[in-house]
């Protein structure tokens, strides 16, 4: 989203990359000093970065201590997230657009939506466990609720922000109400719809980990929870790094989609 992207050719972005890399290395270096060099904390509370990194790679082939490799956990977590997320997007985006476009529909749906909106996604965990047990379905439904809210709110605002003058143009050209919706309002809303997709995905991913901490037998949240019980902080931190990395990767993929879909718009 940075504005400098337009101005600065490659040189500038290269400089930024160096700054960013420097911050990561500085962080690792201080961590390393703190643990391996000065031994300021016991290794069973905060392991050294070298230990964490080696554990991270070992976990890709090793199922110990909690019973599955890293890839299996990632796959399980992604499967749950993307299931719930996909349903949330499929329901939430059209719902938000319709609420933004059809006033009466908005009046009809809004009371229920306003009640549901302040409930955080993870507050649905208990009721979903009661309904669906601790399998994929209960967590997918928690994520569905989380993604739904972000998708509806952003699609709604995007549709509402359609410029009057654009609607005038449509009307002078004799476009029907549905044509105006599909050819003016939805393209107008597209930047915010995509923002909604991104916010929803990030929220889904955090909700998933919370759900897995409470109820699951596989997944990244499950892994770090189990390793807390058996005292393996290295696996916990490796797991956290993986959660962060996968989350960032998902956001990045959506950014690519955004670039593709928002040709000709500002601030991409």
């Amino acid at each position: 989203m940075s504005k400098n992207e337009n101005k600065g050719p490659k040189k500038k972005s290269k400089k930024y990359i160096l700054i960013s890399i420097a911050s990561v290395f500085l962080f690792l270096f201080i961590w390393w000093l703190y643990t391996d060099v000065f031994k300021a904390v016991p290794a069973n509370a905060l392991p050294s970065p070298i230990k964490v990194i080696s554990t991270f790679f070992i976990k890709f082939v090793e199922t110990k201590p909690e019973g599955a490799t890293m890839l299996q956990h990632i796959f399980s977590s992604l499967q749950t997230t993307l299931t719930g997320y996909a349903i949330g997007v499929a329901v939430g985006v059209p719902l938000g657009i319709c609420m933004g476009w059809f006033d009466k529909f908005d009046m009809f749906v809004r009371p229920i939506f306003d009640l549901l909106r302040p409930i955080p996604g993870i507050a649905w965990i208990p009721v979903m466990i009661v309904f669906f047990g601790i399998g994929l379905m209960s967590k997918a439904m928690v994520i569905f609720m989380t993604a739904l809210i972000a998708c509806v709110v952003n699609s709604y605002s995007g549709t509402k922000q359609t410029l009057n003058v654009h609607l005038w143009v449509g009307r002078t050209f004799g476009a029907s109400n549905l044509e105006m919706l599909f050819r003016i309002a939805i393209p107008s809303a597209m930047p915010l719809i995509l923002t909604g997709l991104r916010v929803a995905l990030a929220a889904s991913w955090s909700a998933l980990v919370a759900a897995e901490l409470l109820a699951s037998n596989r997944g990244l949240g499950f892994m770090i929870q189990q390793c807390r019980v058996i005292g393996r902080p290295d696996v916990i931190i490796a797991g956290m790094i993986t959660i962060g990395g996968v989350g960032a990767l998902l956001t990045y993929l959506l950014k690519l989609l955004e670039k593709l879909l928002l040709k000709g718009r500002k601030n991409i």
Binding site: L163, V165, V169, G174, P187, L262, G264
Partner: peptide, 18 residues
């Protein structure tokens, strides 16, 4: 509105996605 009347607006009336 009708197609026998074309309108040119002040500035921001182009569709940015087209």
């Amino acid at each position: 509105p009708g197609p026998e009347r074309g309108v040119v607006y002040q500035s921001i009336s182009l569709f940015p996605w087209l």
